[in-house]
Design a protein around this nucleic acid. Structure first.
Lengths: 210, 210
DNA sequence: CTATTTCCGTACTGATTAATATGGAAAACT
DNA sequence: AGTTTTCCATATTAATCAGTACGGAAATAG
């Protein structure tokens, strides 16, 4: 445990953050080790591999860091103290704001981070695919809660609600990357939530009739 | 005009189609010339460069071909014989169906074809970005038509309608690529169109009141 | 101090990248 | 036939890719 020997000269956390930004901006494959080493403080190949193992291992670590920081905009989906509708709305609004913030690359890294991959990097692609699947199941869980609580009725329309929200959520990345402003996307969220309200009203009417 | 000399041995059109599928599946950068030449009928480098000029030139040609075939699902947006609402609905439904068809890669090539690019390939990225901008302005044109015809009123909500539809449209690529089924996405379109109807109804009510 | 341990600068690996050079074969025109 | 034109197989280019080998420098432990 007591670390002996020469201590590393660069800040591992800072290097990780720098790599995060680069991967976020360019995606996994086009980002070269030379670029990475440069932005991580001109570290040497020896230092890089000693500290992070490989390009793929670094990327996996970067993804974890992203999820624990910027990715926390998705957290409301699993917060059962929030009403299902509120959870989804908060998630969409926070995502829209985060993805358009200019202090880092635009769009969501889980959507844009490994879009274009050679067959050999399929595992990296799957890593992000799994995260997107988590998003969908989080939304689906909210809808399920709303059905159980009676806020929504268990109809065919309710069943595709998760797909609708997920499509919009993941579409935000494209819009943010292409330069759409936070306010516009936020207002779009407001309008999208009308669909929930339409269904909730229908359910309320139905239960009032029963 | 009269072509003399030895005729080329491979079918240029077939080769272009094969390249289209490969680019569509993997994206611009990860697709190597070796892969391209292989799928285009094991043509030689000499044949490749003689016929297509360069990887980027081939990609640009592929994009044009895509737009003239699969990309025609966007055509309703510029068809003024259709009602604005119908134009958007047809576009979304046709996109959802096309992007989930299993006879070719899933998702839209204009969204997924050059997501991850090195700085040096920025021009390629911009090429697709421009096409996505065209999509947005097509949707915006439909909304403008609806405002002029009185179907929608000129409100703040109406103003973000294009952003809402564009976000959904471009989000379809992510959902299709991740394996969502045509029917689910189509039903999601049905629900999304409710927002148009909400606004149209409000406009109708307003004009009835005036 | 010496011994140990880790870090890092440099050089280098083999593989792959997009793109070219060369030269013979094949087809068409005269 | 003879000439011209194009096509294509092969070999090769310089650059870059991710990842390693090695050896001196630096810091801690005793």
């Amino acid at each position: 445990m007591a670390r002996t020997g020469r201590p590393r000269e660069f800040d591992r956390d800072k290097a990780l953050d720098a790599a995060l930004v680069l991967f976020w901006e360019q995606g996994y494959e086009p980002t070269s080790l030379n670029q990475l080493k440069a932005c991580m403080g001109n570290i040497s190949p020896a230092s890089f591999y000693a500290a992070f193992g490989s390009k793929e291992a670094l990327f996996r670590e970067v993804v974890q860091r992203y999820l624990q920081t910027h990715g926390q905009v998705m957290a409301p989906l699993w917060d059962e103290t929030l009403s299902p509708r509120d959870a989804i709305e908060r998630t969409l609004r926070a995502s829209a704001r985060m993805q358009t913030t200019r202090t880092h690359p635009q769009g969501c890294m889980m959507v844009l981070g490994a879009c274009n991959c050679s067959p050999e990097n399929q595992p990296v692609q799957s890593l992000l695919e799994d995260e997107r699947a988590r998003n969908r199941s989080g939304i689906a869980a909210c809808v399920r809660r709303a059905v159980i609580s009676g806020e929504l009725e268990d109809s065919a329309a309710t069943e595709v609600l998760p797909t609708l929200f997920a499509t919009f959520l993941h579409g935000l990345s494209c819009e943010a990357r292409d330069g759409n402003k936070a306010k516009k996307l936020d207002t779009a969220v407001t309008m999208l939530m009308q669909i929930w309200d339409n269904l909730a009203e229908a359910s309320g009417t139905a239960s009032r009739h029963s």
